[in-house]
Every structure is written in C-alpha cells, then in structure tokens.
C-alpha cells in the first residue's frame, strides 16, 4: 500500500511542510505543534509501509508522549514571542544553508543515478500479524542482548532524570 502514489504524496507533502514549519515558526509553541503534525503523519506513513507495530508505537510514544512533554515544557516556560528566531549573521546563515544544500544535493544525485533498486516486495496484507511476529522473533531471539541492555539503559535514564530535576519541599519530602 505504500507504493500507492495516492497515499505517499499527500502524506509526504504534509510531513515536509510541517518540518519546514518547525524550522521557520517564530513562536516556539507553533514549532512544537508542527512537530506534532509531522510525527502523526509519519506514524501513518509507517502504518502504510507495513510496519504496523512501529507505526502504532510511533503514534503512542512519539506523538502521544514525547511531543506532549515538549509542548507542556514550552507552556510552562511562557516565553515571549521572539522577533528574529533565526541566528544572526548573513555569512554564517549562508554557509550553513549552503553546506546542508550541498549535502542534500550529493545524496540526491547518488540516489537518482543508482541503476539497481531492490525489487519491492508484495504489499503486506493489512490484517495479518506477520511483520509484528517477525519483529518480535528478531527482538527476542536474535538481538535479545541489545534488547536487555536497552532496558537497563532506560532504567538508568529514568533514575537520572528524576534525580536531576528534584526540588526540595513538596508534599512528600521528608528531609
């Protein structure tokens, strides 16, 4: 289903416009909301690509928790609307944009001059669980060590975040 241009082009257009909105919006909350839009549309594109579990996880984790945190933090900060959000200096701006432009041009050229593309697999049946089952087998059998290390990493990150942002006082402070 992802090879269908009716699905791909509108979604890709919205994702591209939303990403540009993150860059160019002057109010940071509008940047965050454009980021939310691009995350949600990317989640739907992952669903269309046949990675059903990852599309659902993208919607639930990225679009549903991480960007909510971004928006909440920005609303708590209550920043004033910045007149010139983009860094000053004409030469530095030009150098930055042009270096990224050269990078993008190189890779686009490399991709478009490729003579051999992998043959697209037939579209996965949307009501089958095959891709999820293969993902689960890969995670829990082939790469189980990395999976467990990821769990330990997340535990360390959670402890670190709580200890960085603790404040004295509050209803349950016993010190």
């Amino acid at each position: 289903m992802a090879n269908n241009p009716i699905v791909f082009f509108p979604l890709a257009f919205v994702i591209a416009v939303a990403a540009l909105g993150v860059l160019l919006a002057s109010n940071p909350i509008f940047s965050a909301l454009f980021l939310v839009l691009s995350m949600v549309c990317l989640g739907f594109m992952f669903l269309a690509m046949g990675a059903f579990f990852l599309g659902g996880v993208q919607l639930a984790v990225y679009a549903g928790a991480v960007t909510v945190l971004f928006v909440m933090v920005l609303m708590l900060f209550d920043l004033k609307d910045n007149a010139n959000p983009i860094a000053k200096g004409l030469l530095s701006r030009f150098l930055k944009v042009s270096s990224i432009g050269v990078f993008v041009g190189l890779i686009t050229g490399a991709v478009s001059l490729t003579k051999y593309y992998p043959v697209p697999v037939k579209a996965a049946d949307p009501s089958s669980m095959e891709s999820t089952r293969v993902l689960a087998v890969g995670l829990f059998r082939d790469y189980v060590f990395a999976f467990e290390i990821l769990g330990v990493l997340l535990l360390v990150i959670a402890i670190g975040v709580v200890s960085v942002s603790r404040i004295k006082g509050g209803t349950h402070d016993r010190a």
């Binding site: 860059l23 940047s31 965050a32 910045n82 959000p85 860094a87 944009v97």
Partner: peptide, 8 residues
C-alpha cells in the same frame, strides 16, 4: 544550526 532557542 539556525535556531537559538534550546527547546527548538
């Protein structure tokens, strides 16, 4: 590269 706000 271009934005000055840390959160952005």
């Amino acid at each position: 590269m271009l934005r000055k706000n840390m959160i952005v």
